[in-house]
Design a protein around this nucleic acid. Sequence first.
DNA 1: ATGACTTACTGCGTAAGA
Length: 256
Amino acid sequence: MKLATWNVNSIRQREGHVRRWLEQVQPDILVLQEIKCETAAFPALGFQALGYRAEAVGQKAYNGVAVLSRVPFEVTHRALPGLPEDDAQARYIELAADGVTVIGIYLPNGNSGGDAGYAYKLSWMDLLRRRAAALLDVDAPLAILGDFNVCPTDADLAPGALPPTDALVRPETRAKFRAMLWLGLTDAVRALQPTGPAWTFWDYQAAAWPRDQGLRIDHALLSPTLAERLTAASPDRRERGEDQPSDHVPVVVELA
DNA sequence: ATGACTTACTGCGTAAGA
């Protein structure tokens, strides 16, 4: 089983990139973030032609997540359980496919909106941990993939790429990410590549890509039985060198 | 010294991303 995650920074700008990538890499399931369109505007037909069924959770202008799958699946949640009913931010999709629970997330960045914006990020992380704990309690094979907007350690950002006050690296952010690992989840990329850069994002500004000043913020977390099946996990750096790329690249995980 | 990013919106600049 091949699972992947990709923050595409607008699916309407990147439909062609995603289609080409699907044909090259042939993942079973790809979760997308920052589709930046309303649910009905998601270009599902273009992916259906390649054998992928699409389900999107969108909103106007910002955020938005989706799943593309060539294996049968059922969407089980379209919002993070525990969030207030009136929370309209499209950041979560959960599905069941081939006996596996797959969660796609676009975790709040936390740098906008002042103290309230950062508090929202932290509370979102608390609720995600609770959801993961509930699924692990019933022994569900679980994969959480997406844009976590967290550099887990200092090895996960190029030196100086962010100030220490940035919401992606602040101690409270990292503590809540670690709390998810302590549930028994495995960071798939770090399980196979414990040290060294494995960037998944390069800013459009300041020549970040040519200077290779990246961040590792897109992750795949696996429950124990899935982690035991892990054979490969890495970012696909090639995508950042394409014309008009997203600022994020896909992360691909393979399970035996 | 200069210009130095990309997207969406109803905008003709602003907000957000990270």
